[in-house]
């Protein structure tokens, strides 16, 4: 978190020096100062900071990709003359246990292909997910566990 402040300060310095306070310039300054910090990451001990940024970015990219894919999948399904639906609700054992992680996972699941989180059990150990294609529940469980849940655990732990 400390390095994040340093990063922001450097970006502000960049904006002051170039005398332009637009958003694009701020983002550019932020990226630039991040690059500068990454050059000396061994010396200031910021290796963890950069790998964390990388993991959060990869989570974001995965999320956007899955979101577009899910929209395309549902759209194709709707156009098909013969919708071969096998909907159902299945239970999913959660590995994450903090509130914000569960919320994030539930939101991500809702916006990914064919799945929609319906309910969380009282003890917060099970997520109930509605899926459009329940012919292979174990495969969906495996996909979530190895995709989003692993990425969330990587990004926040």
């Amino acid at each position: 978190m400390n390095l994040y402040v340093v990063n922001l300060l450097l970006a502000m310095a960049w904006m002051t020096l170039t005398d332009s306070f637009s958003l694009g310039n701020m983002i550019f300054g932020f990226v630039l100062s991040a690059a500068a910090l990454s050059l000396i990451r061994e010396q200031v001990g910021s290796v963890g900071y950069f790998s964390k940024i990388g993991r959060i970015l990869s989570l974001l990219i995965l999320f956007l990709y899955e979101l577009v894919m899910s929209a395309v999948r549902v759209a194709i399904l709707v156009v098909k003359p013969n919708m071969n639906l096998k909907p159902g609700i299945f239970a999913y054992q959660l590995q994450v246990d903090r509130d914000h992680e569960i919320t994030l996972l539930a939101n991500l699941i809702t916006l990914t292909p064919g799945t929609l989180s319906v309910d969380v059990s009282e003890d917060r150990s099970t997520l109930y997910i509605h899926a459009l294609d329940c012919s292979d529940v174990d495969q969906i469980r495996k996909d979530i566990a190895e995709g989003f849940e692993r990425k969330i655990l990587e990004a926040f732990r």
Partner: peptide
């Protein structure tokens, strides 16, 4: 297509897939 999905899918839960994903995108 999200609006078409509202009509073609069989129940409220499947329709939610259509409205919440495709509509948002």
């Amino acid at each position: 297509l999200a609006a078409v999905g509202l009509w073609r899918l069989p129940d409220i839960y499947t329709r939610m897939h259509s409205a919440s994903k495709t509509g948002t995108v």
